Simulated assay, not measured.
Amino acid sequence: MPYEWTQEPPHDKSHWQLCLWPYRSLLRKDFVLFMGATALIIALPLITLVGTIILWALLPFFALMFWGLWTALNISYRRGEVLEELTVDDTTAHLTRHNPKGPLQEWEANRYWVTVHLHPKGGPVENYLTLRGGDREVELGAFLDAAERLTLYDDLRRALRAD
């Protein structure tokens, strides 16, 4: 699961933190291996064309394809650098969303008035998950898939009820 629970101190259920982040199927070290393998696959057919004019005709297209793939994967990594932190103590629930570009988003409410809501069909996505407290309702885990949001909903309900 792309989220992690932290309790402070270890056996105190009234102080905890939840960190959420998008799932990464291609890690940075695998990115390097993938790009290296792609370069090798591109180079193998070009080796047969060494010394011909056709090599110079094809080389810009292969270079453009390689650059486009590199750029697209880097943009995907930057967009996925989202981190949501929900910190709960005796009196307050505080949600902070670190966006890859743009301002930091924060939400705070009295812990005892915070409720977790799951909208199976009514939200923009399946199993739309929100926190409601005070005068605002905020989305949580927009980047998670439907099954992960459902699991997180159950975990959050238990955690917020534990006193």
Rank of each mutant, 00 (worst) to 15 (best):
M65H: 11
A93M: 03
F61N: 05
R24G: 14
I75H: 05
A57V: 14
F31G: 13
H98N: 06
L58I: 09
T71H: 15
A63H: 07
I47R: 02
L58Y: 12
T91R: 01
L26V: 10
W70M: 06
T92N: 02
M35S: 04
L49W: 03
L83W: 09
F66R: 05
A63V: 12
S25F: 13
G68L: 13
E81A: 12
I42Q: 10
D89K: 01
Y23T: 13
T87F: 07
L73Q: 10
T87E: 08
L40I: 15
R97P: 06
A39C: 07
L95N: 00
T96N: 06
L33E: 04
L95Y: 03
I47K: 00
R28A: 15
L46W: 05
P45F: 07
D89Q: 01
I75V: 09
A37P: 04
V82Y: 03
T96D: 06
T52Q: 00
A37M: 09
A72P: 01
L69P: 02
A43F: 04
F61L: 12
G51Q: 07
L46R: 07
P22H: 05
W67R: 12
L46T: 10
T96I: 10
L58C: 10
R79E: 11
N74H: 14
W67I: 15
R79T: 12
W67K: 13
L55F: 14
A37G: 15
I75P: 00
F62Y: 09
D89F: 00
D30W: 06
K29D: 13
G80E: 07
E84Q: 14
P22L: 12
S76H: 14
V50G: 00
F62V: 05
L73R: 10
R28Q: 15
L27E: 15
L27V: 11
V82T: 11
N99D: 08
D89H: 01
W56E: 06
T91I: 04
M35K: 06
L64I: 08
L44Q: 05
M65F: 14
L26P: 03
L59Q: 10
V82D: 00
A39S: 10
H98V: 06
L33M: 08
L40S: 01
L44R: 06
R79D: 13
L55N: 06
T92W: 01
K29P: 05
D30A: 15
M35C: 03
L95H: 00
P22W: 04
I42F: 08
L27R: 14
L49K: 03
I47A: 05
M35E: 05
S25R: 13
L55W: 08
P60W: 10
F34T: 08
P45L: 09
E85F: 03
E85Q: 11
R24W: 08
I42D: 14
N99F: 07
L59E: 09
F31V: 08
W70V: 01
L73C: 06
P22E: 06
R79N: 13
S25P: 14
I41V: 15
F66N: 04
H94V: 02
T71C: 07
T52D: 01
M35T: 04
G51V: 10
E84A: 09
M65Q: 11
A43Q: 03
L86N: 00
I42A: 15
N74R: 15
I75S: 00
H98S: 06
G68K: 04
W70H: 09
H94Y: 07
